[in-house]
Design a protein around this nucleic acid. Structure first.
Length: 515
RNA sequence: GGCUGGGUAGCUCAGCUGGUUAGAGCGCGGCACUCAUAAUGCCGAGGUCGGCAGUUCAAGUCUGCCUCCAGCUACCA
């Protein structure tokens, strides 16, 4: 079996500035990508920016620069965020790249050939002020009887020529696809929503516009620009070499194993995208996971409320590993979650400083002081030691099971079960007493703990790369002995290596006085 | 309105095909320990498992009704 894994984030619309939602989505993918790499997979991790559309065209105009210069600039914000968060994407795609234009036009041709595209006209109530179409049922009536948008803007009936994708012909085939691939959409409740949406019948999809220019021209009809989703979604195959379906990357990684998305764009990924692909004679991705949103101190986040969470600020305040841990641990992945200062500090201090950091610290400190600053050699393991070691060894399987269904919070909990058990084991064995009574036994206990911590630190690497590395450094684990392969039976911590005086890797967060 | 999911300890949540005294983490109370980042461990208090009525020898776990909450119900992404 091929151990390959292709995971993607959505491409982020450059007109937005990066916020916690972007960081969250990519973080989940990053943890997964790191996990799979450590687990021996060849991984392709893709993120990028969506740079086309009328809004971008207007923003560029407002900024007095041409659209390409504008997107060059704002796209950088997202690459900066990725750097700060220590994301390990293998490619950063931009929809303005030539390779993407080629891919979009090629998939368009395929859809045309298969008969899934036709030229018609798009009609609806359009509000010039809002630059948006509204449905009949959304409209309000003005006192003079004329129609108004929900925003109060006047609307007019507009018709423009547009190409359509024959989505209406795909409901049966999509339902069959969902049926044959029960885990295609996660979580389950999102899957139900999508299935019920498709069962309700599908309408054809407008996939071109003639009212702006900033985008990929429709092949053979330059008057039309390919419209949003066909352009945006295609990035997932562009990045692996499409239209060259014989390209090495394409053959290796398509279909993608996972498209990670926010719940707001699930439909586009779970309905339109597989329809486009199947219609084009291409394979659909294996899974789309829709995660939830964050609130801030119990309040819905919105620009108008001014309570947008800036990930850079979080990282500056609490530390990168701490923020990464919190975001993936605090909330059952898939649910909405609340960010609060209290919860953040609680996780930092309880889980990280007290449980995990202190465990490493107390054990390595004892080794440093009592074992001549060298990793002790163990004697025969007692039943208690064996229980501890077995628990450490069993953790990988438990964590892997959770990661395979994107249950990050449960994966971390599975690790913490072992951490708590380790602290209990320390107290039960009381190595500080053994120091006088039975030094050989003390060595065995401390070795058992060090070996357990080695397992823990290797397992926490995908979530907290920096702190995990520092713990492994302190244990004297070589850089090339940190993959999950190093957790297989046989591999174990070598005795005799130097153990320096440990330094805390998870400082407690102390609230500033008078804040 | 329709569809879907959910209402379990103060808080956040686990509880597979129904079966001994309903669990975890945090918070709270007590005890122990002193290796450690005043960290850790142990014990404990705390729940009519939203409500009512059923099925069953037995229901948090099944059925019906009611109630409250959330999401979805198509072209801004």
């Amino acid at each position: 079996m091929d151990k390959r894994y292709y995971v993607t984030t959505p491409i982020y619309y450059v007109n937005d500035s990066p916020h916690i939602g972007h960081a969250y989505t990519t973080l989940a993918c990053d943890a997964l990508a790191r996990f799979k790499r450590l687990d021996g997979y060849e991984v392709y991790f893709l993120t990028g920016t969506d740079e086309h559309g009328q809004k971008v065209e207007k923003s560029a105009q407002a900024a007095g620069v041409d659209p390409q210069a504008f997107t060059d600039r704002v796209s950088q914000n997202f690459r900066d965020l990725a750097d700060v968060m220590d994301f390990t994407h293998d490619d950063f795609i931009r929809t303005t790249e030539p390779r993407h234009k080629a891919a979009c036009q090629d998939i368009w041709r395929r859809l045309e050939e298969s008969g899934d595209i036709y030229l018609g006209s798009y009609a609806g109530w359009y509000a010039v002020r809002d630059e948006a179409f509204y449905g009949e049922d959304e409209l309000k009536k003005a006192p003079d009887g004329s129609k108004l948008a929900p925003t109060g803007a006047p609307v007019e009936w507009v018709e423009e020529p547009s190409y359509f994708f024959r989505l209406s012909a795909w409901d049966e085939r999509l339902l069959k696809f969902y049926d044959e691939n029960p885990d295609f959409i996660l979580p389950k409740t999102r899957r139900n929503e999508v299935v019920s949406f498709v069962k309700g019948g599908l309408m054809d999809l407008s996939i071109s516009r003639t009212t702006f220019n900033w985008g990929v021209p429709v092949p053979g009809n330059d008057a039309h620009i390919m419209y949003v989703w066909l352009d945006a979604l295609t990035n997932y195959i562009t990045a692996v070499g499409y239209p060259d379906t014989e390209a090495a990357l394409y053959k290796k990684f398509w279909p993608a194993d996972l498209h990670m998305v926010g719940k707001d764009i699930l439909r586009f990924h779970a309905v339109y995208w597989p329809a486009f692909l199947l219609a084009a004679g291409l394979e659909a991705p294996k899974r789309v996971f829709a995660h939830g949103w964050w609130t801030n101190e119990g309040e819905k986040i919105s620009k108008s409320l001014g309570n947008v969470i800036d990930p850079l600020e979080l990282v500056n305040t609490y530390g990168l590993d701490q923020v990464r841990y919190f975001l993936l641990r605090e909330v059952p992945f898939g649910n909405d979650g609340d960010f609060s200062r209290r919860a953040m500090v609680g996780r930092m201090n309880s889980d990280l400083a007290n449980d995990y950091g202190n465990l490493a610290q107390r054990v390595m400190s004892m080794i440093h002081k009592n074992c001549d600053a060298r990793m002790p050699a163990p004697g025969p393991f007692s039943a208690d030691d064996q229980v501890m070691l077995d628990a450490a060894k069993a953790a990988l399987g438990n964590v892997r099971e959770k990661m395979d269904v994107q249950a990050f919070h449960e994966a971390l909990e599975a690790i913490w079960v072992v951490i708590r058990q380790s602290n209990g084991y320390v107290d039960a064995q009381a190595p500080w007493k053994l120091k006088k009574e039975d030094p050989a036994r003390m060595n065995t206990v401390l070795y058992t703990l060090a070996e357990t911590i080695r397992h823990l630190a290797i397992l926490t690497q995908p979530f907290m790369p920096d702190a995990s590395a520092r713990i492994l450094d302190q244990l004297g684990v070589a850089a090339d002995a940190r993959s999950f392969g190093a957790l297989e039976s046989g591999a174990a911590l070598a005795s005799g290596g130097a153990v320096a005086k440990p330094e805390g890797v998870f400082p407690r967060y102390v609230e500033e006085e008078g804040a």
